[in-house]
Design a binder for these strands. Structure first.
Lengths: 139, 139
DNA sequence: TTAAATATGCAATAAAGTTGCATTTATGTA
DNA sequence: TACATAAATGCAACTTTATTGCATATTTAA
């Protein structure tokens, strides 16, 4: 089974043991265009405990097979909108800086979000940029 | 009390009633550089129920006083890393497109994240870009 | 084949989001 | 100023997701 061997190779090259669960989850990722959440996996693989899927994602994440995508759900953080002071200057575009040392998130309101291009047929409504690094206070 | 009047003006201009809780939360936002989470508010304002703070944030959000900042916590979605197939091509920078119609999140791997500048003293370690809009399938 | 290391399933707990309802408060009008 | 109405708050309850411990099962290397 060539396909399975390929999955095995990927897992091994990331120092992960080859298990049925991991192979199935990895194949599912590779056959999908869109990003997946844990609940997507829970719906797809009812034969596995959700803790197993949780740990599968964690192991894939730690080994770099997948990456986490920032989102607006969950433990949200909020920043004051620029238009709070000037209501007519509506801005949907922000650059947020998250310091990996102190953990603080700041809105870089004075920095413009650079132009971005998307594939044909895609329509942009808002752009968010999250920059990770070390802030001036922690340097 | 000039400061309180200013808070009242902001709330009124956003069609929100002026309450002690809202004034205190708004002032807290305005005196802080960093973004705040609900638990930050819960720690700061123990006199208010967490549901009240939750709804305060919701009302601020709906009226545009604050905006939500994407993050890596909570209900996470995951995408296959590009280096899963070519391990030596490490990429920390991604553009993710979230369709506001079908809800799917896609990694636009072939699109480069544009250059971004940050203030003096800040060090960039990774850049993430989240573009919201309508995808080609939903147009 | 076997021992050691790791993965899985189950139970339990924690944290955050969300809703319903009774009570309190803010606001416009008489 | 007092009142009626609409909205905000507090409390209880429930849902979803994240997380950990431990016993059992599976993988891997010798």
């Amino acid at each position: 089974m060539e396909n399975t061997d390929h999955l095995k190779e990927i897992l091994e090259s990331h120092n992960l043991r080859t298990t049925d669960c991991r192979k199935k989850v990895l194949r599912f990722f590779m056959n999908r265009e869109a990003a997946l959440s844990q609940s997507d996996l829970e719906n797809q693989f009812k034969q596995y405990d959700r803790v197993t899927l949780y740990r599968t994602l964690n192991s894939f994440l730690a080994s770099g097979i997948i990456h986490k995508i920032p989102n607006y759900q969950g433990v949200a953080t909020y920043g004051l909108s620029r238009e709070t002071c000037s209501p007519h200057d509506h801005d949907d575009n922000h650059i947020h800086f998250k310091c990996n040392h102190c953990g603080q998130i700041q809105c870089l309101d004075d920095k413009l979000v650079p132009e971005v291009t998307v594939p044909k047929g895609y329509k942009i409504e808002a752009v968010n940029m999250i920059v990770d690094g070390i802030c001036a206070q922690c340097t």
